[in-house]
Simulated scan of single mutants.
Amino acid sequence: MSASGEVWAVLLAAGSGSRLANAVGGVKKQFLGWKGFPLFWHSALTFSKTPAISGIIFVFPSDQVEEMSDVIAGLDGADSLGLPFKVTAGGERRQDSVFNGLSRLPAKCSHVLVHDSARPFASVPLVTELIDLLQSGIEAVIPAIDVTDTIKEMDGDIVKKTLVRSRLKAVQTPQGFSLPVLYAAHKQAEAEGWDVTDDASMVEMAGKDVHICAGEESNMKITNPEDLKRIEDDVRTLPCVGWGYDVHKYGEGRPMVLGGVPIPGGPQVIAHSDGDVLLHALADAILGLFGGGDIGHHFPDTSAACENMSSGIILKEVMVKAEEAGVEIIHVDLTIIAQVPKLSPHRDLIRKNIASLMGLNKDQVNVKATTEEKLGFTGAKKGIKAVAAVTGLKTFS
């Protein structure tokens, strides 16, 4: 691939979706909503997150091009692709729609990925793998997965042959090609009257080698009404980590409280709320699990309602927010940094109290205390700080 060549994606959303339309009130499958967007937009977002993709050609039914141009403009405004894109009309057959898309590619495009919008689950790693193979000099590459069922060749309702499963693959999109190779295959198909189901078949018929890479079981195609349940039930649980940090200055103010535990004889802290530096760091870390901002946003120090507020209340409220965001907290690791007071006598009680406040087992909470060897403001006994790392599992649907 030349240094100046670009990789573009042709995203096909021009099909009739006849097998599914009746089940969803006539809505074509590529326009079905999922996670707040039409199916085709999820594929567009995947391409936009792939650095090697330079642009996208959207191919829509010819009678919906104007309407969908407006829809895309609105979607791009709400969740920008950050890529140039064009909209064009599809044709009677899939291969006609692809050719229309190819015809809109810029002159500097050297490679193209052709993708069916009815496969909204294709991943960035899969797209990246296809592009890497194209950049290595391969002219055509498609993702494929093993066939798990035994396949029979039929004549009517009579079995004529059982195919050797080990030699079979189920292919997916995106399919990647050198643009000159794919364009030439389309021109030959037009001249010789070929009718194919995918671009790889066309390139094969043109005498070119088509390579495969590992596809993804999750990269399924939405074809039948039963597939809709897969969309509805598509729930993923992924690990997430939040980190929190807080500081309080010593001075005339509030009695020291750490993790909800009073520290007798400890220096007073200057604070708007109760000054529990440890629970403040913990609450910030919990908000970090789901992108919830920080406690200064939710509990501003300018609010009269937060004056001398118990940090236990702050902790409980951010935990409710985490639960609403689909997060399950599974582990907490806390460190208090202070030259004074000596915290080892209080550490176990702090750990036990935080576990109780959060509804966790004691072994899911770790509390550490350290000094900074008389360095910095904590070493000068001017204040106290705390850091928190919280691990959770977030459910995405």
Rank of each mutant, 00 (worst) to 15 (best):
L133A: 07
V127M: 14
M154Y: 13
S166C: 01
P106W: 01
A122Y: 03
K169H: 07
T162D: 08
D157R: 02
K169L: 09
F99W: 14
V114N: 02
G156I: 07
C109W: 06
L113G: 03
T162L: 14
G137W: 13
G101S: 11
Q95N: 11
E129G: 00
K86C: 03
A89W: 15
L168A: 00
M154E: 06
T148Y: 15
L133Q: 12
V147Q: 11
T128D: 13
G90W: 08
P106R: 00
D96T: 07
A170M: 09
V159K: 00
K152V: 11
D116F: 11
V164A: 04
V164N: 07
I151G: 00
K161H: 13
D116S: 14
L179E: 09
R104L: 15
H115Q: 15
S103L: 09
S97D: 13
S123M: 11
A170H: 04
L133D: 10
K161S: 07
S97P: 08
N100K: 15
I158L: 10
S178A: 03
E92I: 11
S123L: 09
I138P: 04
S178Q: 03
V87D: 11
F99Y: 14
C109E: 12
K152C: 04
E139T: 01
R165M: 05
A140W: 14
V171W: 06
V181H: 04
Q135A: 08
V164R: 06
I131D: 05
S178V: 01
S97M: 13
R119F: 00
V171N: 00
K161N: 14
A107N: 13
P106N: 03
E139Q: 09
S103Y: 07
E129D: 15
D157W: 02
M154R: 03
H115L: 12
Q172E: 08
S97F: 08
T162V: 15
L105C: 04
L168S: 01
G176A: 15
S178I: 01
K169V: 08
T148K: 15
L102R: 06
K86P: 00
A89K: 15
P174C: 07
P106G: 00
D149Q: 14
L130T: 00
S97T: 11
I142T: 13
D157S: 01
Q172R: 02
T88F: 10
V114W: 04
V171R: 03
V114M: 03
I145D: 08
V112Y: 02
K108F: 09
L179Y: 10
V87N: 10
G101Y: 09
Q172Y: 02
E129P: 01
I151Y: 05
A118G: 06
D132R: 12
T150I: 10
K86N: 07
V159C: 01
V159E: 11
T148S: 14
V181L: 11
D96V: 04
G101W: 10
F85W: 14
N100S: 15
Q135C: 04
V124P: 00
A144Q: 05
I158V: 12
D132K: 13
K152H: 13
V159L: 00
E153C: 02
G156Q: 09
K161W: 13
D96L: 05
D132L: 07
K108T: 14
